[in-house]
C-alpha cells in the first residue's frame, strides 16, 4: 500500500481529484447561493423583500428549489431529437465547470487544481464550446421559439467571443504569459485594470453577452420567444441550463478577477489567507452582474450585432495596437 502511495503519479492524481472534488462542490454551492442572492437583490431593487419563507431570511430557498426541480415531471417533446435533447443540458454545465480547473484562487498550490501554460486559452476554448448547449438545445426541441433562441445565441456568442478574446490580448501583452498564475503574479504592483481600462470594459460587456445575461439575454427573451432555447425543457434538465448559466457567470467573473483585478493580490493578509481577496473581488463582480441585469433594458437584435461588430471589435483592436505600441516604445527608451 505504501509503495503505491509513494508513487508520485498516484499522489498527483489523488490530490488533483481531491481538489477537483472540493472546487466542484464549492462552485455548485456558490451557484445555488448566487441564485438566492440574485432573487434577494432583485427583490430589494424592486422594493420587495425577495424569498423569505424557507429558513431564516429565506436562506434554505435554494435547497427547496433544487429539490423541487428534481421531483418535477420530465417532459420530452414528441418530435424532439431525443439523444441531442438529453446531451444539450450536460454541455451547458461541463465547459463552465472545466474552466475552474485553471483559476488560481490563491498563491498556494493547494488553492488551484492546476497551472497550465495555456490557461487563458483553455478558458477561451471552453467559452467557445459553451455555445453548443444552447444551439443544440434549441434545435433538438423541435419548437420554433426554441430554434429562434438557439439561432440568436449562436450568432451572439460567436460575435462577442471575438471581442472577448481580443480584449484579453492587452493583458497578455503586459504579462507576457498565458498562464493565469503568471498573469496574477505580474499584477503584484498594480492591477491591469489600471493599465487596461478599455479592455476591462470590453471584457465585462462581452462577458454579459457570453453568459446570455440581461441586457444581452436575447436567446431567452421572454417577451418574444416564450423562454427561448429552453422552452421545452423541464425538471432538472431545465435546472442544468440554469446551473450552466450561473456557473458560467461565476467562471467568467473568476477570469475577470484574475486578468484585470489582480487575482489574489491585496494588502494586509498573509499568503495563506490571500484567497479571501480573490473571493471578495469575485463577490463584487457577481453583484455587478446582478445589478446590471436589473438596471438595463434588453438590446434590440440589430443593436446587439452593431455593438459587437462595429464598436467592441474595432475598439479592442485599437486597444491591442496602442498597448503594443506603448510596450514597444518603452522597450526602446
Amino acid at each position: 500500500m505504501a509503495a503505491v502511495w509513494n508513487n508520485p503519479d498516484v499522489q498527483f492524481v489523488f490530490w488533483a481529484l481531491v481538489k477537483i472534488l472540493v472546487i466542484l462542490h464549492a462552485m455548485l454551492g456558490m451557484v445555488s447561493y448566487m441564485i438566492y442572492a440574485e432573487r434577494k437583490i432583485a427583490g430589494h431593487m424592486q422594493a420587495r423583500v425577495g424569498p423569505n419563507r424557507v429558513g431564516p431570511l429565506g436562506l434554505f430557498q435554494p435547497v427547496a428549489d433544487v429539490a423541487k426541480l428534481f421531483f418535477k415531471e420530465e417532459f420530452v417533446p414528441e418530435g424532439a431529437n431525443k439523444v441531442i435533447f438529453h446531451i444539450a443540458p450536460m454541455l451547458a454545465v461541463i465547459p463552465a465547470l472545466v474552466t475552474f480547473a485553471v483559476v488560481p484562487f490563491g498563491p498556494l498550490d493547494a488553492l488551484r487544481v492546476t497551472d497550465i501554460n495555456v490557461g487563458l486559452l483553455l478558458f477561451l476554448a471552453m467559452s467557445s464550446l459553451g455555445v453548443y448547449a444552447i444551439t443544440l438545445g434549441g434545435w433538438s426541441s423541435n419548437n420554433k421559439y426554441a430554434l429562434l433562441g438557439g439561432l440568436r445565441s449562436s450568432a451572439q456568442m460567436i460575435s462577442y467571443e471575438l471581442a472577448m478574446g481580443l480584449s484579453t490580448i492587452g493583458v497578455l501583452l503586459m504579462a507576457g504569459s498565458l498562464s493565469l498564475v503568471d498573469i496574477v503574479r505580474a499584477q503584484e504592483h498594480g492591477w491591469f485594470v489600471a493599465f487596461q481600462p478599455v479592455a476591462f470594459g470590453i471584457f465585462m460587456i462581452t462577458a454579459l453577452a457570453e453568459t446570455n445575461r440581461a441586457p444581452f439575454d436575447l436567446p431567452e427573451a421572454e417577451a418574444e420567444l416564450v423562454a427561448g432555447f429552453h422552452t421545452e425543457y423541464s425538471s432538472m434538465k431545465f435546472g442544468l441550463f440554469f446551473l450552466g448559466e450561473f456557473a458560467n457567470v461565476i467562471s467568467i467573473s473568476c477570469i475577470a478577477v484574475t486578468l484585470f483585478l489582480g487575482g489574489w493580490n491585496g494588502p494586509w493578509l498573509p499568503e495563506s489567507l490571500k484567497f479571501l481577496w480573490f473571493f471578495a473581488k469575485l463577490g463584487v463582480l457577481l453583484f455587478f452582474f446582478i445589478w446590471v441585469r436589473w438596471t438595463f433594458p434588453r438590446l434590440r437584435y440589430d443593436q446587439l450585432m452593431g455593438l459587437g461588430w462595429k464598436v467592441l471589435l474595432p475598439l479592442s483592436l485599437a486597444n491591442i495596437l496602442v498597448t503594443a505600441g506603448v510596450i514597444w516604445w518603452r522597450a526602446q527608451g
Binding site: 495555456v118 453548443y132 444551439t135 460567436i158 478574446g165
Partner: peptide
C-alpha cells in the same frame, strides 16, 4: 503542443463547427 491543442478547440471545435452546424441545422 498545448498551444496547438487549445487553438484546435477554439478555432475548429468552437468557431468553424458552430458555423457548420448553424448552416446544417437551419
Amino acid at each position: 503542443a498545448e498551444f496547438v491543442a487549445m487553438v484546435q478547440v477554439i478555432v475548429y471545435a468552437g468557431a468553424i463547427m458552430v458555423l457548420f452546424l448553424f448552416v446544417i441545422m437551419y
